[in-house]
Design a protein around this nucleic acid. Structure first.
Lengths: 137, 137
DNA sequence: TATTGTTATACTCTATAACTATA
DNA sequence: TATAGTTATAGAGTATAACAATA
């Protein structure tokens, strides 16, 4: 079961990365861009927690997106230590285009299932995606 | 959906690795050991194809298992280029113990679902785990 | 004293090319 | 010539600790 989960994820990830490549993005940068576009105005710490990545990895991701002109760092008015990551106009456009491609790819990947099966799969994956935290064997 | 799949897999993988650590194994080495124990008498090339790893990675994995005395390389009688990977007695014991732990962990991880739901999940993951190959977007 | 972003470092993983011995 | 195993190497990805500015 865990083996199937790993393999299904590997295909899903590979396909998503392949689809995002023409947009100059990967799943990681796409996820950051998605949150920057969303209007949440996340700090780098927020991104770190949501994406479960180390803060130092967020730095590199945002460096990349910023050098492409897709996002910018703004000082957080509430906390001068923190940066808020927001999408530029170019970032919003790039994300809309990328999202279109990702949606089409997901239809191709999960589209063979019925609506009900997709709902079931989503519900089960969501349950599995919850942190156990009590991973005390 | 792909996001949930990735996160569910991350938890599954982390839990499996945590469970295998006391046995001195990781999911990779556990998978190799499982095939070595199975009686299939796989060549390194077989392992490479089944686990979808590069042959050079198989070398390192088997080096590790061999240095622990869990598997050994035997010349393939049908092809003197090839090695057949077989488990030692210690390897069989280690695998049986590890498998027990993994089974318990899978019950903990997937056990909240009904039998029918687990069947559905397995079937869907199996479908997703099939190579698309026509990944022509 | 604790936290945010940053840098540096090391360690694992992955991908690739070359080499040998066999086929 | 093609293939099995091996080696070496370079690139990702990941984890960790330390630091300056701020809370």
């Amino acid at each position: 079961m865990a083996f199937l989960l790993a393999r299904a994820n590997a295909f899903s990830l590979a396909r998503a990365n392949a689809v995002l490549q023409p947009h100059g993005l990967k799943v990681r940068s796409y996820s950051v861009l998605a949150l920057a576009v969303s209007g949440v105005r996340p700090t780098q710490r927020d991104l770190s927690e949501f994406l479960r990545l180390d803060p130092s990895q967020i730095v590199a991701l945002i460096d990349g997106l910023e050098s492409c002109g897709l996002v910018s760092r703004e000082p957080d008015p509430n906390d001068r230590r923190a940066n808020v990551v927001i999408a530029t106009d170019a970032g919003r456009e790039a994300w809309a285009a990328a999202r279109e491609s990702v949606s089409l790819a997901e239809v191709g990947f999960f589209g063979a299932f019925s609506d009900q099966d997709r709902e079931r799969l989503t519900a089960m994956l969501r349950a599995l995606a919850m942190a156990p935290d009590d991973a005390s064997d």
